[in-house]
Write a protein that binds this DNA or RNA. Structure first.
Lengths: 202, 202
DNA sequence: CCCCTGAATAATCAACAATCTATTCATTCT
DNA sequence: AGAATGAATAGATTGTTGATTATTCAGGGG
């Protein structure tokens, strides 16, 4: 099995080179196979199809991103409120910069989100787990109101949809997106209703 | 000028029939012209182009919708909080049902949002005016926290993006959208932070 | 028996021609 | 003159044909 993983790795590496050089569409399976010194047919013993290779590449990168988010949340000296802000800003900036600076990544993101909508759901679910942990922590500290943390996380994600795949929908510049995210988070955290000053824990 | 408006109306009516029968793409300017007993070229004395006729049709409908929203907001016996809910639910349901029940409307919505993104901005701005009024009213009554109402309205719209053109992005069913909207509104209204019970005015 | 190959297949794509149609404008009518 | 026409144009759309290419699978090693 370990050897099989090595080959998968080799394929992913070869594809990564090709994709970043010529793009996903202009890379053929035959080329990737040749780079790996194997036949095209053999690729299919390691990946169900071309898109799955692209997914593997994307996921490798995404894992780093997820780790980073998890790390932000676990800086437990900071108030939950600030960590929440860090989380969403990190998410926005990394996605924006990635898609902005790398047209190849943009191409692949576009294709995956069209052909594999469940992939986006999977990412959302991963991030929700982290978000839920943060909310639970905030509740434990008395910063956030008690309630179903997972449900709250879902609603938070729903309210910040616009900032998740910035350039796939909105065409806004990063500064404008940041300004809006700031505002939305303030709204969501403090609420619209009149409130007496927060009995800040900590 | 009044006679010019009559002709515009006649054109819009003819186009409405054609569009709802055969769709926007399959309707030609020549056909609309014939229906109005005029030459194709003459249409251009009344509308800059084909899309503008579609826009006029859409706007006619939209005005009713806007009026309805304005009416909801001005029911001043209700707490602002409830009117806010009414406003967003009305918005969601009417858009969802319109696009769901009428494939021709969906076709036109798709084309306008592609070719005329500024139209969507215009609609957003209209609705923001209504929303701002509601927020100001809520602030006056002490239900909502004081602050820049227009800015708050903008952020509210940003947080409810997902529900504005439901089937252009999300493919969720109406019940699921309603559940999410309910949750997002609750979050936004009450806020994430711990709060002492609202010193409800009224 | 398990790996692997590479030709066969079917789906997709690119390029080109042919057609159609939105838009313009020189001209005609009133 | 101002209103209206409809032929001319340019750009988009459609249909077709000929590759290209992802994917499969019958068979050849090891």
């Amino acid at each position: 099995m370990a050897v099989k993983d090595d080959v998968r790795c080799q394929i992913v590496d070869a594809a990564k080179k090709r994709f970043s050089h010529f793009g996903y569409a202009k890379t053929t399976m035959a080329e990737v196979a040749t780079d790996c010194a194997m036949s095209p047919g053999n690729l299919y013993r390691f990946f169900p199809g071309k898109l799955d290779i692209a997914e593997a590449i994307a996921t490798e990168d995404y894992q780093h991103h997820l780790d980073q988010l998890a790390r932000l949340v676990s800086v437990s000296e900071k108030p939950a409120r600030e960590r929440l802000r860090d989380l969403f800003f990190q998410e926005l900036r990394r996605t924006y910069n990635k898609l902005e600076s790398d047209p190849r990544a943009y191409e692949i993101a576009l294709i995956i989100s069209r052909e594999r909508p469940e992939y986006a759901n999977w990412m959302l679910a991963n991030e929700r787990k982290i978000l839920t942990r943060l909310i639970e922590d905030g509740q434990r500290r008395g910063e956030f109101a008690p309630g179903n943390a997972d449900y709250t996380a879902e609603m938070l994600q729903s309210a910040t949809m616009k900032f998740r795949y910035p350039q796939l929908w909105s065409k806004l510049s990063l500064p404008k997106l940041e300004r809006e995210l700031e505002g939305v988070l303030a709204l969501v955290v403090d609420g619209l209703c009149t409130r007496l000053p927060c009995p800040d824990a900590a």
